[in-house]
Simulated scan of single mutants.
Amino acid sequence: MNENLDQLKDLDVNMYIISKDTPEQQRELYDALAREYGKSLPFISDPDLKMVERFDMKNGDVAYRGYGLLDEKGNVIFHTVNDHWGEQFDQTVKEIKDEYHSLSQ
C-alpha cells in the first residue's frame, strides 16, 4: 500500500492507519515503512477496537482490512471491507475515489 500512496494524493482527506498495536509497535512499523518507501501514513492506536467498531469493521478481537471516511464531526460517511491492498490496489483506489467523489454529487 505504501508504495502506491501517490495514487490517493488528489483526495482532500487526512489518511491514517488504525490498528490495535501499541504506539511503540506502530512507531517501529512507521519507521520501517518510512525507511523502505520514503513515507508512511500516520498510525492511530485503537487497542480496544472502539474506532474500528464505529466503522463496523470489527471481526472478533481483530479488525477487518478496509477503509472508511469520517466527516469533521466524527460521523462515519462510508466504510468498506477490502483485503485487496496488494494485488488489486488499482481497483481499491478506484473504489475509494468513486466513494469519495459520490459525496459531492
Rank of each mutant, 00 (worst) to 15 (best):
N2W: 03
E3V: 04
N4S: 15
D6C: 08
Q7M: 14
Q7H: 06
Q7W: 01
Q7Y: 04
L8D: 02
L8R: 01
K9E: 15
D10L: 11
D12Y: 01
D12R: 03
V13T: 14
I17Y: 08
I17T: 08
I18F: 02
I18D: 01
K20S: 07
T22P: 01
T22V: 06
T22D: 07
T22W: 06
P23E: 12
E24C: 07
E24P: 02
Q25G: 12
Q26T: 00
R27M: 15
R27Y: 13
E28M: 12
D31L: 14
A32C: 03
L33T: 02
L33R: 05
L33F: 06
R35S: 12
R35T: 09
Y37H: 12
K39T: 06
D46A: 06
D46S: 10
L49E: 02
K50E: 13
V52I: 15
R54P: 00
R54M: 05
D56H: 05
M57R: 00
K58H: 09
N59H: 11
N59W: 11
D61Q: 13
V62P: 00
A63R: 02
Y64H: 13
Y64G: 00
R65S: 10
G66W: 01
G66N: 06
Y67N: 12
L69T: 04
L69P: 01
E72Q: 11
E72R: 08
K73G: 03
N75Q: 10
H79E: 09
H79T: 14
T80K: 03
N82S: 10
H84S: 15
G86D: 15
E87K: 11
Q88L: 13
D90E: 15
T92A: 07
V93P: 01
V93F: 05
K94M: 13
K97V: 00
D98T: 11
Y100S: 03
L103A: 10
Q105H: 13
